[in-house]
Design a protein around this nucleic acid. Structure first.
Length: 600
RNA sequence: GGGGGCGUAGUUCAGUUGGUUAGAACGCCUGCCUGUCACGCAGGAGGUCGAGGGUUCGAGUCCCUUCGCUCCCGCCA
């Protein structure tokens, strides 16, 4: 192999015309014309047409007839200008080609299980996701990753990681590694456990995040830490959740929220700029309370408006019995306004599909809809609302002709927010009213410190998050639930991309918080003893954030799941179709680890 | 754990109220072809209709069970 003189297919251009080149790569496509044979040759940099002809070289031509897709070859040839009427504007190298006088087949390939060439797609900027079944793609991931669109995903992942490192390095952050074999702690997600061979019956846990270590590094005085690091959580998977995923983990001392906001806004600016996307900074901020009330969740999609509006007070004497009953029981009625879509939504769709089928799947009991036609509300139940109620509804909802109003009512305020929030997203997607190629970020702030789960106080973020005020004299659980945390989430296009907080740095407060969460002194010592002890040796005020790299990439590359930006992901059932992990292990291995398999 | 969708050729899919030998496109194989680039033309191979059971004269189609994949909810400090 002529390694030193090798050229790259995708890098050849007109300045190389009449140069002798050596190329190596995969056969992307073969077009045999008899006497003349073309192939597209593909390497990491791109594709170029190479030509074999009886007249150019009889021997090379005859060997070329045996070429098949994905054969690995080396060619020696002359870069030539294509004649004007034979150029191919669809590939970057389409004005030139290589006339081959020597062909070496470095390796053959079986016929691939699916097509790897993306010929026919390369005139489009937005290469469609492969229609091939994802499990087959994952089983042959090494072939799937040969596809140019997948290579771009991985290359852009690399670029964004490099941009991130460069940015943080320049901002005086130190890249410091933390253990993968660490200690299981009780809160949060389920841990992946690793049995210890040396310590019978004991287990390491894989980190859900380097949280405690990065705080320890602050106590060590490093001041600014980052790590692009794998985290592990043994929970059910989603398109944006993998059992192992990558975080851009950041922590800094002697800082406050404003430092984090401006640091991350600048980082995001750099990252998006590296992909030629301009984003406006600073990002808007919305409180947790507003997010829940206006959009129904704590990761609002602000690419479109359609805020949820409370109309309960307008309908206190309404004749519509469902609303009447709910209001009488202290319930709530909220609505959204789908602008300008009334003509696109028929009565059948509204009533039978949305109000009966969709809303129940989203967890609601019912849905009320009203179209605005000729300045008036129109629906199957509009006659139960008197004129002044209708007028008030129109005004409150900002209703204009051709709008559709949707209302959800329930005695549970939380349910109304959740269901209408889900419906807002559902109908926006269904009616295609979400602007594309547009990124809308925001900070969600003022999270509650605690939430109540089955009557017990649990931390909403994690138990190291600083309360917004001193809580040591508050004992009333209701008052505690009203306390805010110094926590913040970064949300892009309705997806939580990052979260962090200013941490507790006083040992007394940390201890008090653990007690509030129901830990005994023994529990605290056993589970967090090392950490609480460390806090007592002069801990600087500190805080940080962790950004989900996979989610960020998925948003920037507009992929339907983070699996598209992870080289070797697990499938929906946390299994790798490529390696078949997880798998059974030998009895000897289990014995060494002091583990016995118990059948349920 | 709950709910929805899907499973037919290597791949993506069609397959009517149950009715001959289960089709198409791409891919693959063979031959022809000197400017194609989603090459073209001619011919060909390729199927446990996810699996098991049932109903029926007859099941890809109907019923039951089961497996796999996927989406939503729960879960994800």
């Amino acid at each position: 192999m002529n390694v030193k003189t090798r050229s790259y297919c995708g890098l050849l251009n007109k300045t190389d015309i009449s140069k002798e080149v050596t190329l190596m790569g995969f056969v992307d496509a073969v077009r045999d014309h008899g006497h003349l044979l073309f192939i597209h040759l593909r390497d990491i940099k791109g594709i170029i047409q190479v030509v074999f002809g009886r007249e150019t070289d009889q021997e090379a031509y005859e060997l070329a007839q045996t070429l098949r897709s994905e054969y690995v070859i080396e060619v020696h040839g002359l870069v030539s200008q294509r004649k004007e009427d034979t150029t191919n504007p669809q590939i970057d190298t389409g004005e030139i080609e290589v006339l081959v006088h020597k062909l070496i087949i470095l390796n053959k390939s079986k016929t691939p299980p699916f097509m790897i060439s993306e010929k026919g797609f390369h005139d489009s900027d937005t290469i469609p996701e492969s229609p091939v079944d994802e499990d087959i793609r994952l089983q042959y991931r090494y072939l799937d990753l040969r596809r140019q669109s997948m290579q771009q995903h991985i290359i852009k992942r690399h670029e964004i990681i490099q941009t991130t490192r460069q940015f943080l390095n320049q901002s005086d952050f130190l890249d410091i590694e933390t253990p993968i074999l660490t200690k299981s702690t009780p809160e949060g997600a389920r841990d992946y456990l690793v049995p210890s061979r040396i310590h019978e019956g004991q287990f390491y846990a894989l980190p859900q995040s380097p949280q405690l270590f990065k705080q320890l590094l602050m106590m060590s005085g490093f001041e600014r830490y980052y790590q692009i690091v794998k985290c592990f959580r043994d929970e059910d998977l989603r398109p944006n959740r993998q059992p192992e995923f990558t975080q851009i983990d950041i922590e800094a001392s002697f800082i406050d929220e404003s430092f984090v906001y401006s640091l991350i806004e600048s980082l995001m600016e750099s990252i998006f700029k590296s992909q030629k996307i301009d984003i406006p900074v600073p990002f808007p901020r919305i409180t947790y309370h507003d997010a829940i009330n206006l959009y129904g969740n704590d990761h609002p999609d602000l690419r479109f408006d359609m805020k949820m509006v409370d109309v309960t007070d307008l309908l206190t004497n309404v004749g519509y019995s469902i609303f009447k009953t709910i209001i009488a029981k202290g319930g709530i009625i909220k609505g959204i306004n789908l602008k300008g879509q009334a003509s696109k939504l028929g009565k059948n769709t509204l009533q039978n599909e949305l109000a009966k089928d969709v809303i129940t799947k989203l967890g609601g009991k019912g849905l009320t809809w009203m179209k605005v036609e000729d300045g008036k509300l129109a629906s199957n139940i509009v006659q139960f609302f008197n004129e002044s109620e209708q007028a008030a509804l129109q005004e409150r909802m900002g209703a204009e002709n051709n709008d559709v109003l949707f209302f959800v009512a329930d005695t549970s305020h939380r349910l109304v927010n959740e269901v209408l929030g889900r419906f807002r997203l559902f109908i926006a997607k269904k009616q295609d009213v979400i602007p594309k190629n547009f990124h809308k970020m925001c900070w969600v702030t003022d999270f509650p410190l605690f939430e109540e789960k089955e009557g017990v106080l649990t931390p909403m973020h994690h138990p190291f998050t600083s309360p917004s005020e001193d809580i040591r004299n508050i004992t009333d659980p209701k008052k505690l639930l009203a306390i805010n945390a110094r926590a913040y989430d970064l949300v892009i296009n309705g997806e939580e991309v990052g979260g962090g907080s200013i941490r507790i740095f006083q040992p007394e407060i940390q201890h008090h918080l653990f007690k509030l969460l129901g830990f005994t002194d023994t529990d605290i010592d056993r589970q967090f003893g090392f950490f609480v002890r460390a806090l007592q040796y002069g801990t600087p005020p500190h805080g940080g954030i962790a950004l989900g790299l996979d989610r960020l990439l998925s948003i920037i590359l507009n992929t339907p799941s983070i699996r598209e930006v992870i080289p070797f992901p697990k499938n929906r059932t946390a299994m790798s179709p490529l390696t078949s992990a997880p798998s059974l292990v030998s009895d000897e291995q289990l014995k060494e680890l002091h583990i016995k398999h118990i059948q349920d």
